[in-house]
Write a protein that binds this DNA or RNA. Sequence first.
RNA 1: GGCUCCUUAGCUCAGUUGGUUAGAGCGGUGGAAUCAUAAUCCAUGUGUCCCCAGUUCGAAUCUGGGAGGAGCCA
Length: 516
Amino acid sequence: MSDKKSYYITTPIYYVNDVPHIGHAYTTLACDVLARFKRLDGYDVMFLTGTDEHGQKVEKSAEKAGVAPLEFCDRVSARFQDLAQAMNFSNDQFIRTTEERHKISAQHLWNRIKENGFIYEDNYAGWYSVRDEAFYGEDELTEGEGGSKLAPTGAPVEWVEEPSYFFKLSAFQDKLLEVYENHPDFVLPKSRLNEVKSFVAGGLQDLSISRTTFNWGVPVPDADGHIMYVWIDALTNYLTAVDYPNENSEKFQKFWPANVHMVGKDILRFHAVYWPAFLLAADLPLPDRIFAHGWWTNEGQKISKSLGNVIDPFELIDTYTLDSVRFFLLREVPFGNDGDFSRTSFVNRCNSDLSNGFGNFAQRSLSMIFKNCDGKIPTPGALSAEDKALLTGIEDVLPQVRELMDKQAFNKAFDAIWSQVAAADVYISAQEPWKLRKTDPARMETVLYVCAEAVRMLAILMQPIMPESIDKLLGQMNIDNRGFDQLTDAHRIKPGADLPKPEGVFPRFEHATDEA
RNA sequence: GGCUCCUUAGCUCAGUUGGUUAGAGCGGUGGAAUCAUAAUCCAUGUGUCCCCAGUUCGAAUCUGGGAGGAGCCA
């Protein structure tokens, strides 16, 4: 491992009871783009995703399927690994909570918190829903058919009474509020931080963190029959992946604490309240940032299994090509907001930004070079003010994008890049190399050189979001060095380099003609 | 029920600590060009800045009230 700066980013681990859908793809995509960006920007990156495989629900699902729990997990976890493959995710690890290393890690964390006096044994009594894996207060319940009790979610609940270990969450209220106060970017977007603050300010109750009614999980150390309950097990994966409990390991030293835990807004509380409390209780440093992103609707409608409008990422890729999907998901909506997935806006966005925008600029530039410069990158003369303005405009975009990416403002970052695509189109229109061909071939070569250079730099900037397409494009241009350190005039594209007949890399999409 | 946030052009949204003619992208309309994936470029917006009242020399921007919507909590 080098002494480069480090960047550790995580997705939540996905619950194996679920089938991969657009939401999973979205969360991991955001992390993938950040991970790729940081690698290109010279960081050592640890990008982690994986599956959460414990719990009563999994145990029951396995039973229903007639297989052992682990076999069930193997099967479903594989679907998430397939998704990572299909989406071209560049995760460095895929962790599973059923791994032995994780058991060791979770138990060690437990012991450490216990030694510090934040775990105690008591009895738990209350209404519990297996389906939701959550406890409910009496006043939250509604009356169902035949007098049965139902959770607010409509799930059946049962009265549960059992011994349980508790985490002294209540002891961390002030410390947590202090964290939020001193690190205003600890939770983004800001509106989510406000929610978290008010939740914590409203008072914290101790958490039941073990169960005795099922077996599929990490056993509580020295406590027969107790299994760690949900979050303390799951969240610890972020530590496991960097070698915890071996705090002296190179990985741990380099990557902990994490820079960003990416989460969906539904699990923000666990990451922004429970997780830092666990870490504080174990004397471990806190991550820099929890980012809670929004949800997608489908053609304006809330997505739900019962409505049958779940968006299948595999199908999407099939229909629209991978990089278009990647691009749309992060370009269309301010990250953090909810967004609507509509076929019309998808086609509009991809056609105008990719096919008509960057794709067309690249194609017209390279094509003119191919036809008019012997299939080689031309040799430029002295650069005019316009030439320089375009190139420095693109160079200047990197620091802007860097800053925006550090705030997970994907949509603004791409905005900044695409404003330079527009500048490039304005440039070529003004320079009119197709006229220069007859009037001033030398100047034409300079203009086309500048265009090729613009394509090179823009493409390098776009790698994180569309790795496959850009790889093809840069491949056509024979550009081998693709890091962000190449975005200076010291690394201009080489005159005389071969340029084969260019092929467009961004397909144009047709609007669906009619609703079915 | 409590708390927080939102409501700006046809659509999606920007609008910094209140200050001159309120912006962008997309779409629409007109024109130019023809190298390019019929792509591109130029021009083009008389918007009740949700409503009402107030503070101020001056408010989309602050205060109060109201309407509609969202989120978190109970």
